Each structure stands twice: as C-alpha cells, then as structure tokens.
Amino acid sequence: MKEIPFSSFYQAYQKKEIHVLDVREQAEYHALHLEGVTLLPLSELLDCYTELDKAQPYYVICRSGKRSARACQFLEEQGYDVTNVQGGMNALED
C-alpha cells in the first residue's frame, strides 16, 4: 500500500493538486476537516465505493491513519489508485 507523510500530503493539498477521501464519521468530519475533500465514512464504504472514479488517484485520510489504511487496502483490491495519509488529521493538530 502506498503511503505519504502528512507534511507531504498537506503541501500537495494546499496546491489543490489532489483528490482526498475522508473516511471518518460525519461528527468527526464536522468537528475538523479540510475544505474540498470528499467525506466517505468507512462505515459506508462498501455501499458507496463504486461511485468513485477508478481513473482518479485518491489520498485517503482519517483521524490517525488506521481507518484510512483499511480503506486503502479495500479500495486497492477493487482496482483503485489510493494513497494512505500517515498520521491523519491528528498530524494537522500537531
């Protein structure tokens, strides 16, 4: 699975060069989130992942990097180009 440190991810995010999936739950997202990202909670991933564009690479983020790693593993198995953001949103607060 491809991974990227939060600092490198955030630089690309600020340049608006990437597509980001946030796999946290709705309440977590509303408490703190990055503008312009797509919310797709891990709990809904199985039902909604086919709506994603397989031709588009995605960076996947959660709170700490664990749920996003699970999401990346699943999405990779389905043929998607995904990269896990290490440290997740916790790294933004550091």
Rank of each mutant, 00 (worst) to 15 (best):
L34I: 07
C72D: 03
S68H: 10
Y58V: 04
H33S: 04
R24M: 10
L45E: 06
I4A: 07
F6M: 01
S8K: 15
V23S: 05
S68I: 03
Q11G: 09
K54N: 08
Y10Q: 05
D47M: 08
F74T: 05
I18C: 03
E77F: 11
Y80P: 09
E44Q: 14
Q56Y: 06
Q26N: 14
G87K: 06
L92W: 15
S43F: 07
E35D: 04
D22M: 07
C72I: 09
N90K: 12
T50N: 11
D81L: 09
S68Q: 00
A69Q: 14
E44G: 06
R24G: 02
E35A: 00
G79K: 09
D22R: 11
Q11H: 12
E3N: 02
D47Y: 14
F9K: 04
S64P: 01
C72V: 02
E93N: 11
R67A: 05
L75N: 06
E51S: 13
K2Y: 02
L42M: 15
E77Y: 09
E77R: 14
V23E: 03
T83P: 09
S7D: 13
Q86V: 10
I4W: 09
Q73P: 05
V37Y: 15
M89K: 05
K16Q: 15
L21T: 12
V37S: 15
A31F: 10
H19N: 15
D22G: 13
Q11Y: 09
L42T: 08
A12S: 12
N90W: 11
D47P: 09
Q14K: 07
E28V: 01
F9Y: 14
A71C: 04
T38S: 14
K16T: 06
R63F: 01
Q78E: 09
G87E: 05
K15E: 14
L92A: 13
Y13P: 07
H33V: 07
I4F: 03
H33Y: 00
C72P: 00
N90V: 08
G36Y: 01
S7P: 07
E17L: 06
D53K: 12
R67Y: 10
D47K: 12
Q26R: 11
M1V: 15
V82A: 00
Y59A: 07
E3T: 15
F6T: 08
C48I: 05
A55Q: 11
L34N: 04
L46G: 11
L46F: 10
G65K: 03
L32C: 00
L46P: 00
E28A: 02
N84T: 02
E76T: 06
N84G: 03
E17D: 10
L45G: 01
F74M: 00
L52K: 11
L40A: 05
L52F: 14
Y59P: 02
R24W: 14
I61H: 04
T83L: 04
S7C: 00
C62R: 00
L75K: 00
K66Y: 11
A69Y: 02
R70N: 13
K16I: 08
K66L: 13
G65Q: 06
Q73A: 05
C72K: 00
